[in-house]
């Protein structure tokens, strides 16, 4: 067993480095998600207002982030922005910015969709008891929209976490980047090391994403059961 590939994981500080890489990945994803969700909810609400210009601008924003591949966005912000705008940001911050803007765009669409699917009578009942527009959203529409949109939001979060595997392309020391380095450094000694390293990375991503995905499925099922029970 001396030369079994699995030992590559425990050679030197490899294991800790991989976990630290995963932590970096997780941190970037978490910050981007929190900021993105907050901005996305606000933009989603604005997109249900009647102002045509506002809606048009936000629509363009959404389509831009939805159509342009994430890799391209990362390169755009990492290589082009500093050169054109003289704005120098470390890779981790660029990553957070890009992911937050992406989450905000996708979230705005989820929130808008959920808000407009709250029945019109709910809005009218709210207005009829004298609620202001703010109160109507705060107490009636948004809480109902949240239960509609929660599964889609969780799915968005799992997608964001998955997509962080692209971060190595802008030199962020994330788990994939570190794994790559370990593979290259140990190629001679552990020819099958690549399998174990990526196996571990797979497992780490799975451990984070699977519970989320399971939760989303459960919520959706519960919501449907409740809706049918009405």
């Amino acid at each position: 067993m001396a030369h079994s590939g699995i030992n590559v994981l425990f050679e030197g500080t490899n294991f800790t480095r991989l976990l630290l890489g995963m932590w970096t990945t997780f941190k970037i994803a978490a910050i981007a998600i929190v900021i993105g969700l907050i901005i996305g909810i606000i933009l989603g609400i604005l997109r249900t207002f009647h102002n045509k210009l506002l809606r048009f601008v936000l629509r363009i924003y959404l389509e831009f982030f939805r159509i342009v591949p994430t890799v391209v966005l990362l390169f755009l912000f990492y290589y082009i922005l500093p050169r054109q705008l003289n704005l120098h940001m470390p890779g981790t911050q660029v990553a957070m910015l890009v992911f937050a803007l992406w989450v905000a765009a996708e979230m705005s669409d989820i929130v808008r969709g959920a808000l407009i699917s709250v029945p019109i009578h709910q809005r009218e009942s709210g207005l009829a008891i004298g609620l202001t527009r703010y109160q109507l959203y705060r107490y009636v529409l948004v809480p109902q929209a949240v239960s509609l949109e929660l599964p889609a939001t969780i799915n968005l979060i799992t997608r964001v976490i998955k997509t962080t595997s692209l971060l190595m392309l802008i030199s962020v020391m994330d788990v994939v980047n570190i794994g790559q380095q370990i593979v290259e450094a140990n190629n001679q000694k552990y020819p099958t090391g690549v399998f174990w390293i990526y196996g571990l990375i797979f497992l780490l991503y799975f451990l984070i994403d699977y519970p989320l995905s399971w939760w989303a499925g459960r919520l959706e099922k519960k919501r449907l059961e409740q809706a049918n029970g009405e």
């Binding site: 709910q122 009218e124 009942s125 709210g126 207005l127 008891i129 107490y139 109902q144």
Partner: peptide, 29 residues
């Protein structure tokens, strides 16, 4: 918005807010 506090209205589709209890539905206004 001001006037609706003086002019109450009830609809055919009895839309209580499903996210609130009976008490909270009534207390909101």
């Amino acid at each position: 918005q001001q006037l609706r506090q003086k002019i109450g209205m009830v609809f055919q589709s009895y839309d209580l807010f499903p996210n609130l209890t009976v008490l909270d539905n009534i207390m909101l206004g």
